[in-house]
Design a protein around this nucleic acid. Structure first.
Lengths: 242, 242
DNA sequence: CGATACTATCTGGTCAGACCAAGCGACAAT
DNA sequence: ATTGTCGCTTGGTCTGACCAGATAGTATCG
């Protein structure tokens, strides 16, 4: 029975309007830089109320299709800017210090990651982790901090924990935080000591995983990330003050 | 010269409104699933016109922060960004047993959630958790398992852990897994004992959080979810065989 | 007493009309 | 040629009104 009837969808007026305008842009009837007719003119042509029209225009603006210039008019935008609507990004932008919460989350996951890796790692996993360790040491000789080598280590452990979701989520966190921290993270390289401290911590974690000592692996990972987070907070506070 | 003068920016009323609401979400004053006051009520509180308010709400919806349900109200959405789960839907559909990995992830987070809640909970947080406990007991009297009351308990703890991201991510996992498990979860209700066992486990967790015993809270949460996961695996294996 | 039916009210969606301040162009005064 | 003024246009905002569906409390009927 349930397959016989279709749900009746009520489409908002503003949806139809924005669909139509997007179609015009896609079809090339409206080109970047073109000025749309004034709002009062459009509501006549479209036969809708101004609030619906404005709702549509507003959505188109936040989606990046048009640009609303107060007291000047509405213009079609060139869609060169990759329209990214990552809600999380907006949230963190609202308060950079919130990124600490993201890193707290990371600690939750990575602590478990190391714990489970110690229990479930294969010898291949272990070998892969070892390789990332060597790569990190090698690259830390260079002037700048090698973020990607650091990430490789953590991701290798996540893989060893035999949970593809964990890898996925942790990798997401890396990707996400990179663009926020890229401007400040370079400072880490200035304090050259940090590099070797991190390397030592990594090696200690590796050792615990190799020994299949889950408790210790988890504990060391937690301490490692606590230490990292503290450095991070220092950095942010310093740059925030400017 | 150009550096001496700053451009005067005119901020739209709707911008201020949406900023404020985003801030409320970031600060955890508004949590996933919360219902916003009605539009007519909000314009009184904020002292703005309805068009500006609606403009703000509309933007927040297209950005993914809230969900506008016609004739029902406006609700805060959980943020999907960290855990971009949608692409994974296909993977889990292909092999329902993969959901075990999702629940392992949940355990990572919730163990930390309980741990931190025990450390950081306010007395208000504690009161809120207690209420979910009572609601669960009351609803478990009914024939069917009250999934939402169960979720409320776990989310209340996440809130008490003072990390808004944790709330969102856990809420996301619930949302995501609900659609997979809805068909099988009802069976839990058949074994009436489970209901009271879960209630007891919840109460034990609550007690540890009330006592601010972080280690114990984390441990009990972990055990609780281990137990749950085992029941889950049984269910899946049984239904998979058909 | 219990199930059904109704009604008052609340919700978001839409429309219409009004006013504001700033941009802009035409035109006059200097 | 520069400056000042006036009026029109533009998007931004507010108010008030109505609609239709959802909802909950009340009244009615069996």
């Amino acid at each position: 029975m349930s397959t016989v009837f279709e749900e009746i969808k009520v489409e908002k007026v503003s949806d139809k309007i924005s669909e139509q305008i997007v179609k015009l842009i896609v079809d090339g009837k409206l080109n970047p830089g073109d000025k749309l007719p004034g709002e009062r003119q459009l509501i006549d042509v479209l036969g809708v109320g101004r609030s619906s029209l404005r709702e549509a225009l507003n959505r188109l603006e936040t989606l990046g299709y048009i640009e609303i210039r107060k007291r000047k008019g509405n213009y079609v935008k060139s869609i060169d800017a990759t329209l990214q609507l990552d809600p999380l990004k907006g949230l963190i932008q609202a308060d950079l210090r919130k990124i600490v919460q993201l890193y707290e989350l990371r600690r939750d996951l990575e602590q478990a990651s190391a714990y489970n890796a110690a229990l479930k790692r294969t010898t291949e996993d272990l070998k892969r982790i070892k390789e990332t360790l060597i790569a990190f040491r090698r690259q830390s000789g260079a002037a700048r901090f090698s973020w990607s080598a650091d990430q490789d280590f953590h991701l290798a452990i996540a893989q060893a924990s035999q949970n593809f979701l964990r890898v996925h989520v942790i990798s997401n966190i890396f990707e996400f935080s990179e663009e926020f921290l890229a401007p400040v993270i370079e400072e880490v390289a200035n304090q050259r000591d940090n590099q070797s401290i991190i390397a030592q911590q990594h090696e200690a974690i590796y050792q615990a995983i190799a020994d299949q000592n889950a408790e210790l692996a988890g504990k060391r990972m937690d301490e490692h990330l606590c230490w990292t987070n503290e450095r991070l907070i220092e950095l942010i506070d310093k740059n925030q003050g400017i």
